[in-house]
């Protein structure tokens, strides 16, 4: 994780100083959003797939972050604390979606992946759609580890802090997830 330094003070420290010490909410809000809104967006999008779902989860995440920032005591990095909240929100959202899907009695397929364009002419969207289908088959834990590592490029140490899991277990999870996703893509003939 890279930190932008300003006179030897990391951006995370500046954010916390503005929000917790100086009480300058406007500046703290702006700085945190500049630093994290896009990263959290792509992290959440890796887990919930569509833009609409990502928007809902991201808004909930950010509202929770700003409402609880005064309770953050620096026992972990601000960065991993934010990712933990975002991950929890995304997984809660997915569980609700799964429940709603299984309770749906009309038998109509409402998997959110099927709401993606099936014949997109944009390569990026098509590849993303295929990747999401591969990720969706993973259990929640592997899915989270895969997204944090593959998309967010998070180190195992930070992942360990974010998910409260040992680095060894995370490496094993990522290895299993890689194998499964790779196999899915090969079977789907996604050779690029």
């Amino acid at each position: 994780m890279e930190y932008v330094q300003d006179h030897g003070v990391s951006v995370d420290e500046q954010i916390l100083d503005l929000l917790q010490v100086k009480g300058d909410f406007d500046s703290g809000f702006k700085l945190l959003m500049e630093q994290y809104e896009e990263r959290l967006y792509w992290h959440i999008r890796g887990l919930v797939s569509t833009h609409e779902n990502t928007n809902d989860v991201l808004q909930n995440t950010l509202v929770k972050v700003f409402r609880n920032i005064d309770k953050f005591r620096g026992q972990s990095k601000l960065y991993t604390w934010l990712y933990r909240i975002a991950t929890n929100e995304a997984l809660t959202f997915l569980k609700k979606e799964q429940r709603r899907h299984t309770e749906d009695l009309d038998g109509e397929e409402k998997n959110h992946l099927n709401t993606l364009p099936a014949d997109s002419s944009v390569d990026g969207d098509r590849v993303w759609q295929m990747l999401q289908k591969a990720i969706e088959q993973l259990p929640d834990k592997q899915k989270t580890v895969f997204v944090l590592r593959y998309f967010d490029e998070m180190s195992y140490r930070d992942m360990s802090e974010t998910l409260k899991t040992s680095e060894g277990a995370l490496k094993a999870s990522f290895h299993h997830a890689l194998k499964k996703v790779e196999k899915y893509l090969r079977e789907a003939e996604m050779y690029c």
Binding site: H51, D125, V127, L185, M190
Partner: peptide, 25 residues
């Protein structure tokens, strides 16, 4: 471990995001 995923990662595929989304957010 995953050459296909490695190639996709290098090409940097990302889906589109609506214009002006982050300002609205």
């Amino acid at each position: 471990q995953a050459p296909v995923l490695s190639k996709l990662k290098k090409k940097g595929y990302k889906p589109s995001v609506p214009d002006g989304y982050f300002e609205q957010l």
